[in-house]
Nucleic acid binder design. Structure first.
Lengths: 283, 283
DNA sequence: CATTAAATGTAGTAATTTTACAACTTTTCA
DNA sequence: TGAAAAGTTGTAAAATTACTACATTTAATG
């Protein structure tokens, strides 16, 4: 519990000198946490043991412990809450609301994620002969990002935005190939169809989608994310960020599974980019 | 600034023994704040002065002051710390580490964002005749996502992955057009060139990039994000997520500026998607 | 391999907090 | 009212805790 509140509430139980201490602290808590017990005693016009007794009365172990509690109370920022953006919000408001609600959603997503499924997914990906990432609309950019990550691993990766190309690609897939389909709702018809085609060819179909959705039903493995989405804005926001983090997790699992030598390979890929960039010193 | 975050970021500057102290603290910060310098030294297997030096390196006055900062960080609503993934982490560990460090990075990003600049950016975007989003590599998928968002607003939006197309597009831009360039490092040569071309044609160039980077110098407006990136993995992770949130913020600001009637338009766009999807009841 | 610089630990010192006890104040009840 | 009891407060010494100076070790450089 917030110790500042506790001080005000306990007021009646304090003795005369203790109350002096309370006043000084409440008047300027920031100063208090940076003072020694001697300084605070002098500021309150009481002796050091009195300050110590004051601390004990608030159920702290002593003065240093009290300062710790006080510091925490002062730092107590607002925890992340899913606050919706409203009509009359200014830039300050909507910026913070979006950050906060995204983080709140990620917290929910973090808790809903199933580790065993992730592990299984990493298994399948490391053994895959060919990996495809398909998504449409907002999920297309997630698939695009996945391409960028997995491409570095020097495994055959496929990504198309075009549903005809996606379809043809799945027609050509087979056993040992993994098709990753990304859709927040899991109700996009053409993706469900693609899933069916891929499975028909014995490819492994992995879905990053809502559980129990039509798409999920067609998958061999479903990586489901429970993300509360702010539908007021009519745009996918938090959901695709959670999907991206899932991609990061899969990519990380992949590199760890491949071991140390493989990490060096990644470093080489990154180093190659240097040629396309200005030198860091020229910043 | 969150001291736990600071510890992880400063890691390179620590000496060997100081790093031991850092590890012990990060592993169990709650214990640390209730320990004396002697106890903590013993737990870390180092001497007391080393702990003291560790505290000073983090710009605190000494051990007690450090504890105060630590206490504040723990209370700060953000238990999220940027913990790096390690060689022998299992799925459970790396999954949580990635979620946590992403969230920690977002918290840093949130604090580094400049509201006035965002407001100015929204201004420019709402007045734009044509908006282009360009990025390369990992930032390409961010640009792709921006396309998806702004396309719904029924304004002319351009997005290319191809650097030749990007270049040509900038050649054809002019006054009243806004070119948004996305690059975490801000040192990608071809993007800097594009920025120069666009500015040469009197287009407004907006950069989502690091401040003081070569790209930033060419921009009319820089939306900078300070995101601590885990370079161990050799892949951009948190940085692009922060960029996406920035896109969300700009898009949100855009819709709010356009007013109520415009929101209905968004709804219509979303409703149109229904035809491509399975009915919700069929879930 | 020698020299220098950096890092770490030891031991003593200083600061800070806590305890024990004495002095003072207030309350209680004959 | 006034003496005993209970509670409050302060002084001074003890204990804990943190810090400094210096010696030793370890690493880096030529």
């Amino acid at each position: 519990m917030n110790i500042l509140e506790k001080i005000t509430q306990h007021n009646a139980l304090f003795s005369k000198s203790e109350r002096k201490v309370a006043e000084v602290i409440l008047a300027n808590p920031q100063t208090a946490i940076h003072s020694s017990i001697a300084t605070l005693a002098k500021m309150s016009g009481v002796s050091e043991p009195t300050v110590n007794r004051f601390c004990r009365r608030l159920d702290t172990k002593g003065y240093p412990d009290f300062k710790l509690h006080l510091a925490q109370s002062l730092a107590n920022g607002t925890p992340y809450v899913n606050r919706h953006v409203e009509e009359n919000d200014g830039p300050e408001e909507y910026t913070h609301k979006i950050f906060e609600s995204t983080m709140a959603s990620l917290e929910v997503a973090r808790q809903s994620v199933d580790i065993a499924t992730i592990n299984r997914a990493v298994d399948l990906l490391t053994q895959a002969q060919k990996i495809s990432f398909f998504g449409l609309g907002a999920s297309a950019s997630v698939a695009h990002d996945a391409l960028n990550k997995f491409f570095r691993f020097n495994v055959p990766v496929i990504y198309f935005e075009d549903i005809i190309m996606q379809r043809m690609s799945c027609m050509n897939s087979g056993e040992g190939d993994v098709v990753v389909l990304i859709s927040h709702t899991g109700r996009t018809k053409s993706l469900v169809e693609i899933a069916q085609i891929a499975r028909g060819n014995d490819a492994t179909v992995m879905g990053i989608t809502s559980k129990d959705s039509p798409l999920a039903k067609e998958c061999n493995l479903v990586l489901s994310l429970e993300v509360p989405e702010d539908t007021d804005m009519y745009m996918p926001m938090a959901s695709r960020i959670a999907q991206l983090i899932l991609i990061d997790i899969l990519a990380t699992g992949f590199t760890l599974r491949r071991g140390n030598k493989f990490r060096e390979n990644l470093k080489r890929v990154k180093d190659t980019l240097r040629g396309s960039r200005f030198d860091k010193r020229s910043d």
